[in-house]
Amino acid sequence: MELTLVESCLLGGLAFCFIIQLWFTLGVHLKLALYKIEPIIPEGLRPISVIICARNEAANLQEYLPLVLEQKYPDYEVIVVNDRSWDATEDILKDLSVRYPHLKVVNVNDGQKFLAGKKFAVTMGIKAAKHEWLVFTDADCMPATENWLLGMQQPADEATEIVLGYSPYIRKRGLLNALIRFETFFTAVNYLSFALKGMPYMGVGRNMAYKKSLFFKSKGFAAHMHIPSGDDDLFVNANAHRRNTRIAIQPDAHVWSEPKTGFIAYLRQKKRHLGAGKFYKGKHKFILSAQIFFQFMFYVTLIAALFFQPLAVYIALGVLALSIIIRCLVYPRLLRKLNYAGLRWWFPLLDLLLFIFLVFNAIVSIFVKKVQWK
């Protein structure tokens, strides 16, 4: 039994897509799987300014802000930017300011000029910061421990200007929550692995840090102030490189976040993130697009091969089995390292569902253009 020309071309395409998949798995993501996590330095070396932007986050601030204000760090301030809230945010911040003298509140009013969503609020917070090292998180985020700031502090190496942290989502019941957590995991694996490879391209504002001087040296968000999203990833994309960027993924330095509970809300969130990705550097867009494209073509050629003679089917299924085995040797280990150990048993299914969602989200983004913060 011999393969026809069509079958040979189809299986050749499948093999090529498999090789590209292997490059991302073994050439990039394996670096994070093998990365040795250094212990957190037990003392604060330099003062820190923590910046949180909040719009109608009264409940979250009441629950999570005290955990930020009670960090075991000798010298730090917490700046909360109240961005035109109309709930009880202002009252809660006033009460907390009495209890915590290192809490500073910055109010953004409705009539203020040059409003540009969250980026304006972040800029106001940075201008109000009195320290050089800035640590960012969100109002709905919870530090894993009281040692969070110890893990996110400025490294002794003065050349380090950016530290990329990690922020997993809190576990809740349901398939949507599992998908959200798995998508967050895969996004983190990508940006952390590429940072280790010397090609940092993004970070998440729920847990990251950089120098105040870097922000002003690069003119802040001026290059993309017109884009509603990107206060975190676009800034990192424009300013991070192999010499000035480090990662911090110690379990104590994680920041847990509240996930979306509805599919539409989650879709809107991912739409904002996808919109910012269009403004990444060309080499980053090429690599990330190739990652999705060849994963898509892997499944397309695999499914197509199943409609041909048995030999083609056996070869295609053999490639699929080899792909699953290799990936199952790498990603469950990463799931344990990044606080998602419970998802490792569902890895093959979630991997397929995530791919379907990413394709769906990309199609939706073509037709739905409007995005906003809050």
Rank of each mutant, 00 (worst) to 15 (best):
G230Q: 04
G230W: 01
D232M: 01
D232K: 00
D232G: 00
D232Y: 00
D233I: 01
L234K: 00
L234D: 00
L234M: 05
F235R: 00
F235K: 00
F235H: 01
V236M: 02
V236Q: 02
V236S: 02
N237R: 01
A240S: 08
A240F: 05
H241E: 11
H241G: 05
R242N: 13
N244T: 09
T245S: 14
T245C: 12
T245N: 07
T245R: 03
R246S: 15
A248D: 08
A248G: 13
A248Q: 14
I249C: 11
I249E: 07
I249N: 14
Q250P: 05
Q250D: 06
Q250L: 03
D252Q: 03
A253F: 13
A253N: 09
A253P: 09
A253M: 08
H254R: 10
V255F: 10
V255T: 13
V255D: 04
V255Q: 08
W256K: 09
W256R: 10
S257V: 12
S257K: 10
E258H: 06
P259W: 00
P259D: 10
P259C: 01
K260N: 13
T261A: 10
T261I: 08
T261E: 15
T261H: 06
G262V: 05
F263R: 08
I264L: 09
Y266C: 02
Y266K: 02
Y266E: 11
L267M: 13
L267D: 12
R268P: 07
R268G: 00
R268F: 11
R268M: 03
R268C: 06
Q269W: 06
Q269N: 10
K270D: 09
K270R: 15
K270W: 05
K271Y: 09
K271L: 15
K271Q: 14
K271I: 03
K271C: 11
K271W: 08
H273K: 07
H273I: 05
H273N: 12
H273P: 06
L274Y: 08
L274W: 00
A276G: 07
G277Y: 02
G277C: 11
G277H: 02
K278N: 10
F279S: 11
F279G: 04
Y280V: 06
K281N: 12
K281C: 06
G282R: 08
G282A: 08
K283L: 03
K283E: 12
H284L: 04
F286L: 12
F286I: 14
F286C: 12
I287N: 11
I287D: 05
I287A: 15
I287C: 10
I287W: 06
